[in-house]
Simulated scan of single mutants.
Amino acid sequence: MAGSGGISGLAGVLFFAWLKRRIGREVTLIGVCAGGTLVVMLAYLASTNPVLSISLIFVSSFFGLGTLPLFWSVAMSRMSGLMAAAGLAFINMLGITGGFVGPYVYGLIEQATGSLRAPYYVIVVAACIGLAFVPVLALSVRRERAREDAVTPGEHARPTPA
Rank of each mutant, 00 (worst) to 15 (best):
L70G: 04
N92R: 04
S140Q: 12
G99T: 05
A150P: 03
R147M: 08
T37I: 00
V39E: 00
G99R: 01
P159H: 13
A162G: 14
E144Q: 14
L139C: 08
V39R: 01
P69V: 09
A46R: 14
Y44D: 07
S73G: 07
L82S: 02
S53M: 12
L68W: 06
M76Q: 13
G107P: 01
T48L: 07
M83P: 03
I30D: 01
L68V: 15
M41F: 11
A150N: 04
V134E: 09
L108R: 09
S61K: 03
L68M: 04
V59G: 02
V141L: 06
L131C: 03
N49A: 10
V151P: 07
I129T: 06
V136D: 01
A146M: 12
T48I: 08
A2Y: 15
T97R: 00
P69C: 09
F63M: 07
A138I: 00
V51C: 04
G24K: 12
Y121P: 00
G12M: 10
V51Q: 14
A34N: 05
W18M: 04
F133I: 08
M76F: 14
G35Q: 03
L19W: 11
P153L: 09
L88E: 07
L94H: 01
E155P: 00
E155K: 06
A132G: 08
R25V: 02
F58W: 15
G3Y: 09
G130Q: 08
C128T: 01
S115A: 13
M76V: 00
I129L: 11
R78Q: 14
V27P: 03
L52V: 12
E155T: 09
I57W: 07
I91R: 02
I57C: 09
F58I: 10
P135H: 09
R22I: 15
M79H: 05
V101G: 12
Q111K: 15
G31C: 11
A118D: 05
V51A: 15
E155C: 01
V13R: 15
S47I: 07
M76D: 04
G12V: 08
I91A: 12
M79T: 14
T67K: 05
E26F: 14
G31H: 08
T67N: 10
T97M: 13
M76P: 00
G3C: 04
R22C: 03
L45G: 12
C128I: 10
P119Q: 06
R22K: 14
V134C: 13
M93P: 00
F62W: 03
L131W: 02
R25F: 01
P159K: 12
G24A: 07
S60L: 13
I23P: 02
R21G: 07
A127Q: 05
I30V: 14
I109Y: 06
T160E: 15
G35R: 04
I57G: 08
L38I: 09
V39C: 07
T28Y: 07
V122H: 00
A132E: 04
G102V: 05
P50T: 05
E144W: 10
S4T: 11
V59D: 02
G98N: 11
L19H: 08
E155S: 05
V51Y: 09
I129V: 13
G154E: 02
I7T: 05
F58M: 13
G98A: 13
R142L: 10
E148G: 07
G81S: 10
M41W: 12
S47T: 14
Y121N: 14
M1S: 07
P161I: 05
A132Y: 04
A11I: 11
G81L: 07
